[in-house]
Amino acid sequence: MELHHPIRAVARMTGIAVDTLRAWERRYGTVVPARGRRGRQYSDADVQRLRLLRTAVSMGHSIGQAASLTDTQLRRLIQRADEIGLDAVSMRNPQARREPSAILEPVLAAVDAMDYGECKRHMGRLAALMSPGELVHQVVLPLMHVIGERWHDGELSVAQEHMASALMRDLLGSLLRLYVPAPAAASVLLTTPSGELHEFGILAAAMLAAANGLSVFYLGPNLPAGEIVAAARRISTDVVVLGLSGDLWRRSVPQIQRIARDLPDHIELWIGGNIEAIRRSRLAPERVILLADFQALESRLSRLLIARRGSASSAAQRWKITE
């Protein structure tokens, strides 16, 4: 008997937001899932096709064009792109970019219009409908990607990019008020080094940490190395997470080296961003943990939570024995 998957499981397996899956099916007939008592039920073949479509769209093809192709044609299209390199595809086609999902369109329209109130209203509605994890993966990260691309291509002004960052800070504040960590929760300090002004990535990381029940200290971007170390010592955090963007990481290396040198040994140092370039350069201190993506971040956060619970359980057991 073939296994079928509900729409939320398919969203996780394919990386396509639930609303986008529904929109693709309604507008383009991408797949035709079975209907059961619990809603849409997707076959393994449906999941495989959706993964192919997502890859094609990420290469710059419109979903309307990709949906008209068979699975075999999609595989050939992706294979040809692999043979010449995705960078070459992007260079030949400056418009190649990830198509924003339908749920982001009102937010992006409000950013274009510099309408902060409308942005906040739409984001508040999405936050009320989604879990924090869904909000980060289906809204915040795709929004960060699209706004970053548009800013890089000159389609958004610095003011619009700053407005979007302010919106994310407000959203983070709401999450921190909503998800109060337990008194003994592990703590994470998040910031970017001096000169690193882009904070979308580190904001998203802070939201994930808050959603996972950790105590979050978000200090914003552009913080000198000495201040980062002093803050980490003062609050006795478990982890310092630094965000780096694009090709600017080289100028942050001396600061990273200083932070790694001066942080107490019990405080871990994690870095996310352009880590492949950092890894190849071999300039990062040995104690630094490089995070390839947000999935790697969540894996580390889970380990931290498990370790803290284990420590708390051991302490409680010792207390019982003492009594």
Rank of each mutant, 00 (worst) to 15 (best):
H4S: 08
H4D: 12
P6Y: 07
R8C: 05
R8F: 14
A9H: 04
A9N: 12
V10L: 03
V10Q: 01
V10K: 04
A11D: 02
R12H: 04
R12P: 06
M13T: 05
M13I: 03
T14P: 01
G15F: 07
G15T: 06
G15Q: 11
I16R: 01
A17S: 10
A17E: 00
V18F: 00
V18D: 03
D19L: 05
T20D: 02
L21N: 01
R22N: 01
R22L: 03
E25S: 05
E25L: 12
Y28D: 00
G29T: 04
G29K: 07
T30A: 06
T30E: 07
V31D: 06
V32I: 03
V32E: 07
P33S: 07
P33H: 00
A34R: 06
A34Q: 14
R35Q: 13
R35L: 06
R35A: 12
R35K: 12
G36L: 05
G36F: 02
R37A: 15
R38H: 07
G39N: 13
G39P: 04
G39C: 08
R40V: 02
R40E: 05
Q41P: 02
Y42C: 02
S43W: 00
S43A: 12
D44T: 04
D44K: 15
D44R: 11
A45T: 07
A45R: 12
D46N: 02
R51T: 06
R54A: 13
A56E: 04
A56N: 12
V57Y: 00
S58F: 08
G60N: 02
S62I: 12
S62W: 02
G64M: 10
Q65F: 10
Q65H: 09
Q65Y: 15
A67G: 04
A67W: 06
S68T: 15
L69K: 07
T70F: 10
T70W: 04
T72I: 14
Q73I: 01
Q73T: 13
R75F: 06
R75L: 07
R75E: 10
R76S: 10
L77W: 09
I78T: 07
R80T: 11
R80S: 11
A81Y: 12
D82W: 07
G85I: 10
G85Y: 10
L86T: 00
A88G: 11
V89T: 08
S90V: 15
P94L: 12
Q95S: 15
Q95T: 15
R97M: 14
R97H: 14
R97S: 13
R98C: 14
E99H: 08
S101M: 09
A102D: 14
A102S: 09
I103Y: 01
L104Q: 00
L104C: 05
E105S: 14
P106L: 08
V107T: 13
V107I: 14
V107E: 01
L108F: 06
A110Q: 01
A110L: 02
V111T: 04
D112S: 08
D115F: 06
Y116N: 11
Y116P: 04
Y116A: 11
G117T: 09
G117F: 03
G117D: 11
